[in-house]
C-alpha cells in the first residue's frame, strides 16, 4: 500500500477526534484543578463527538435534508449517513448536562470551604 493511499484512507475527522480524546484524557489525569478537569472532560467530549460523526462522513455527500418532495427517491444516493448525526445530537446535550453537574460539584466543594485541587479531597481512602 502506498503512502498516499494510506493517507487517503485515513479518516481525518476520526483522527483528530481520537487525538482530542487523548488530549482530554491527559488533562483529566494530570491537572489537579477541579475546573481544569471539567475543561478536560469537555475537550474529551468534543473529541468523542468527532469520532462518532466521523463514521457518518462520506466524501462529497450532502446533508441528509431534502429540498422538496420531488427528488425524494434519488436523494438518498447523495446524502450522508444520518444515524451518527442523530446520535451526536443526543451526546452533545448529555455532555452539557454532565459538564453542568460537574461544575456545580466543583462550585459547591469550593464554596463549601475547600480549595480547587482534587488532591485535597482524598479524606476517604484505604
Amino acid at each position: 500500500m502506498s503512502v498516499m493511499a494510506f493517507i487517503a484512507g485515513i479518516n481525518p475527522v476520526a483522527a483528530s477526534g481520537a487525538v482530542l480524546v487523548l488530549v482530554g484524557l491527559w488533562g483529566v489525569l494530570s491537572r489537579p484543578n477541579l475546573f481544569k478537569i471539567a475543561v478536560a472532560f469537555s475537550v474529551m467530549e468534543t473529541g468523542v463527538n468527532l469520532v462518532i460523526l466521523s463514521v457518518g462522513y462520506i466524501r462529497g455527500r450532502t446533508a441528509p435534508i431534502l429540498d422538496s418532495a420531488a427528488d425524494a427517491r434519488s436523494a438518498s444516493a447523495r446524502m450522508t449517513d444520518p444515524v451518527p448525526q442523530a446520535l451526536v445530537l443526543t451526546a452533545i446535550v448529555i455532555g452539557l448536562a454532565v459538564t453542568a453537574l460537574m461544575l456545580s460539584y466543583a462550585v459547591r466543594l469550593r464554596t463549601g470551604g475547600g480549595d480547587s485541587s482534587i488532591e485535597s479531597y482524598g479524606e476517604e481512602k484505604w
Binding site: F35, N49, I92
Partner: peptide, 29 residues
C-alpha cells in the same frame, strides 16, 4: 461534513452555552 444540525448544536451548546456555564461557575466559585 454535511451535518448542519450537529454543527448548529455544537456551536450553540458546545461552544456557546458550555463556555457561559463555565465562566459563571468560575465566577461563583
Amino acid at each position: 461534513m454535511g451535518a448542519p444540525d450537529v454543527a448548529m448544536t455544537e456551536a450553540a451548546i458546545g461552544s456557546g452555552l458550555t463556555t457561559v456555564v463555565f465562566l459563571y461557575a468560575l465566577a461563583r466559585s
